[in-house]
Simulated assay, not measured.
Amino acid sequence: MGVPKRRQSHARKNKRRSEWRKIDKPGLVECPQCHELKMPHRACLVCGFYKGKSVM
């Protein structure tokens, strides 16, 4: 297993840790049944429809 030869600086460590906040938020789409916003490719939490069929 690889072992670091030198200590990582604070700046390098903090730069690596700050990247996770830069991930984009997922886009929302309008449900064709109830016209509420929902996550794409998922059943609507309000009306329970997915691809025109009731699944919940």
Rank of each mutant, 00 (worst) to 15 (best):
residue 7 R to G: 03
residue 56 M to T: 09
residue 49 F to R: 07
residue 5 K to H: 09
residue 5 K to L: 14
residue 45 L to T: 14
residue 35 H to T: 13
residue 16 R to H: 04
residue 47 C to W: 02
residue 24 D to E: 12
residue 47 C to T: 07
residue 47 C to D: 10
residue 31 C to R: 05
residue 2 G to W: 09
residue 26 P to R: 12
residue 22 K to V: 07
residue 35 H to I: 06
residue 11 A to S: 10
residue 41 H to S: 10
residue 40 P to N: 01
residue 35 H to M: 10
residue 25 K to T: 12
residue 37 L to W: 06
residue 15 K to R: 09
residue 19 E to R: 15
residue 2 G to H: 11
residue 14 N to H: 09
residue 52 G to V: 05
residue 52 G to R: 00
residue 53 K to W: 11
residue 13 K to A: 11
residue 38 K to Q: 12
residue 21 R to P: 04
residue 42 R to P: 00
residue 37 L to F: 07
residue 37 L to I: 04
residue 56 M to K: 11
residue 30 E to Q: 13
residue 40 P to V: 00
residue 30 E to Y: 12
residue 47 C to K: 01
residue 7 R to T: 13
residue 20 W to V: 15
residue 51 K to Y: 08
residue 11 A to K: 13
residue 40 P to A: 04
residue 31 C to E: 06
residue 14 N to S: 08
residue 28 L to M: 13
residue 12 R to M: 03
residue 44 C to E: 06
residue 40 P to K: 01
residue 31 C to F: 13
residue 46 V to F: 11
residue 24 D to A: 14
residue 31 C to K: 03
residue 35 H to C: 03
residue 4 P to S: 05
residue 18 S to D: 10
residue 40 P to M: 00
residue 10 H to W: 01
residue 45 L to E: 12
residue 6 R to I: 05
residue 28 L to D: 09
residue 3 V to F: 14
residue 2 G to F: 14
residue 45 L to K: 09
residue 29 V to S: 08
residue 8 Q to Y: 05
residue 48 G to M: 00
residue 8 Q to P: 03
residue 5 K to R: 06
residue 19 E to G: 00
residue 11 A to C: 04
residue 33 Q to N: 14
residue 33 Q to G: 00
residue 15 K to Q: 07
residue 45 L to I: 05
residue 50 Y to E: 14
residue 50 Y to K: 09
residue 3 V to N: 05
residue 33 Q to P: 01
residue 7 R to W: 09
residue 54 S to G: 05
residue 55 V to C: 13
residue 41 H to L: 04
residue 51 K to L: 13
residue 55 V to T: 12
residue 12 R to Q: 09
residue 1 M to T: 07
residue 45 L to S: 14
residue 17 R to H: 15
residue 51 K to A: 04
residue 41 H to A: 02
residue 17 R to T: 07
residue 23 I to C: 04
residue 34 C to W: 03
residue 38 K to T: 06
residue 29 V to I: 15
residue 15 K to P: 00
residue 4 P to T: 06
residue 39 M to Y: 14
residue 29 V to D: 11
residue 30 E to W: 02
residue 12 R to W: 00
residue 55 V to E: 09
residue 33 Q to W: 08
residue 42 R to D: 00
residue 50 Y to P: 02
residue 55 V to W: 01
residue 7 R to Q: 13
residue 47 C to N: 03
residue 55 V to L: 06
residue 38 K to A: 01
residue 28 L to E: 15
residue 38 K to P: 00
residue 53 K to S: 08
residue 30 E to H: 09
residue 21 R to M: 11
residue 9 S to A: 10
residue 4 P to Y: 05
residue 3 V to A: 08
residue 53 K to C: 01
residue 45 L to P: 04
residue 23 I to A: 08
residue 7 R to E: 11
residue 33 Q to I: 15
residue 14 N to E: 15
residue 43 A to W: 02
residue 35 H to S: 07
residue 20 W to A: 08
